[in-house]
Design a protein around this nucleic acid. Structure first.
Lengths: 330, 330
DNA sequence: CCCAGAAAAGCAATCGATTGCAAAACAAAT
DNA sequence: ATTTGTTTTGCAATCGATTGCTTTTCTGGG
């Protein structure tokens, strides 16, 4: 059922029908009513593709996430999609994975679809390859980043003070008389490197600056958290605190400690990052640094909508403050 | 950079360029090469909107999920998106929420976008409102359902034997000498009602058929699981087993039992459903009925792709078998 | 009753591709 | 050189809307 079919049935031209569909003025009230009835009767629905072609806008927004499965990102896809779809946009959520080429490929594919805006979630999008792809494929549409930033005129970034946040966590443990702290990093994203910096700063200001070297690698996963904790216990039996870049590994670290007969938090404190649901399920409940991922994403979504509405006096970057949610592991 | 711009630069017609872009035959090899170079040089990208208009296909697939945040659905959006996008489709993931109208609204909006196929995840889409919406808005495109079914010619369903699965769980507990079992249901979805049926069947065949009445309501959430467990303990201090329709509430039930000084699984067994990551995090680790949600979704995706490729000899419904993952709570 | 000015409706171009059919270019055979 | 047949290429219509501009219709004042 196209606009022409309706026009024919109503005995008017397609233009007239179009104007009724879009509530434009200059139509005799009677005609308008008649056409409206016909539209309803035929349950006419405008073809968004055709509309997008002439309007040169798809009312679609691309959302790039490395991996939607991380508990960390779970809420995001939900709330951001909700917010944007309330504003009349349709979301194209793409899991890009880690490799640069797949991110570039995803941007390219979205560009082909004439997206009106792009939202990228996660600091891994803060890289040269993505920057180039955006310059190349989407130089003119608004782009927002949650937990990242790129120095391009059309890109706005929302960040969080992770360096400080982690430093605060370290200081919290120190204030509980736990000075010998290890730091566990899953991967070298810009975001995690920031955290590591905060760790090192705070440690050097404490009584055991040599712990600044206690940095361990562990890809995100339950098994790794368990494994790395045992490794730390072996190399540093005197360890007093564990600072993680995410919650999952921290949860299994708690289990590893308990399994080894080490009381938590009496002998060793554990702090996770992200403040996901896992924190409450952990027993004892996990203290965590809330990195405000959801807030960052929502703020990015709002900024994107503002830009789409033509507001171009927005700051290039804004900074949120993380906070510690203290539970039972400190 | 449109196809006409390229045509002008190359001194040929748009048709010729189009044929090169789409690798169609009937172009002189030399011309083809020259145009290909030009395409690369100008980094030309076909406008999918325009292409969609004439081809009457958007190469987009709608994915309906009530709420992507449920751990239960976490993997799905990831793997299904991956599978479909490998096949060249772009996914429109929509969180519809529970109310019928929002599901209908979502279907309507997707129809406007001329999606080529629709995938619905979850038994809540098995309802009259959705059926009507599909008949109305998408009578001709392939639709696949994970964990649900609708009697329409263009709808294929993938189901799981939940009734049996739960019955097996009950029998497992019974074989461990736990006969007095309560069933906790979060909401009356078709899927959960199936499970309840399995519960009742198995219980009636056991030594304590009166427990078939021990059915408790609890909306999904950690707090509810804790609360409802205490309520059950109060009303039936002799309870020996708890069967949940999802994992989260089961996890907090375990905690409630331990907090009440009741040994798990010695005095009371607990079984969850879904087999999410929470099972491993729970301490003791949670035994769960794997409802094969991921497998169902992947199978639906494959069926959808088959239908899109014109295979219309697919069975209207196929059935998968659930399995019990026994861990430490039984 | 005529005419100006406003209101309503329609024409036709446009968005950026695809594609059936016609035309042109080329090659080979007579 | 002409004809025939095969490749290549181009023309123009089409997909389903939107919109500037023109034309038609209406309204009311003189």
């Amino acid at each position: 059922m196209t606009i022409y079919d309706i026009a024919k049935k109503a005995g008017v031209s397609a233009s007239t029908v179009s104007r009724v569909v879009n509530n434009k003025p200059g139509i005799k009230p009677e005609t308008r009513r008649k056409i409206q009835e016909l539209l309803k009767e035929c349950s006419y629905t405008p073809n968004e593709t055709a509309r997008g072609l002439v309007k040169r806008s798809s009312r679609m927004i691309g959302i790039l996430i490395t991996d939607i499965r991380y508990a960390h990102y779970m809420d995001i896809a939900f709330f951001v999609e909700q917010e944007l779809s309330r504003a009349g946009y349709t979301c194209l959520i793409v899991n890009t994975g880690i490799p640069d080429e797949s991110k570039v490929e995803a941007i390219h594919r979205l560009a082909q679809r004439q997206i009106d805006g792009l939202l990228m979630v996660g600091s891994t999008f803060q890289c040269a390859a993505v920057q180039e792809a955006i310059e190349q494929d989407l130089p003119d549409i608004p782009v927002a980043m949650a937990n990242g930033y790129l120095p391009l005129p059309n890109v706005k970034g929302v960040l969080v003070d992770e360096c400080n946040g982690v430093a605060e966590c370290i200081r919290l443990m120190q204030s509980r008389n736990h000075q010998k702290i290890a730091f566990i990093i899953p991967s070298s994203t810009p975001s995690n490197l920031q955290k590591q910096q905060g760790f090192e700063q705070a440690i050097r200001q404490g009584t055991h600056p040599e712990c600044a070297e206690w940095v361990y690698q562990s890809p995100t996963s339950l098994e790794d958290g368990y494994r790395v904790t045992n490794q730390i216990l072996q190399e540093h039996p005197d360890v007093e605190g564990l600072m993680f870049c995410e919650d999952e590994a921290a949860v299994s670290a708690v289990r590893a400690l308990l399994d080894a007969g080490i009381p938590v938090p009496e002998q060793v404190s554990v702090i996770g990052t992200d403040n996901t649901r896992y924190c409450e399920i952990c027993n004892p409940k996990l203290t965590a640094l809330d990195n405000m991922m959801l807030e960052m994403s929502m703020e990015s979504a709002r900024i994107l909508l503002e830009s789409l509405n033509g507001n171009n006096s927005l700051p290039a970057r804004i900074m949120l403050f993380s906070r510690i949610i203290e539970r039972e592991t400190t």
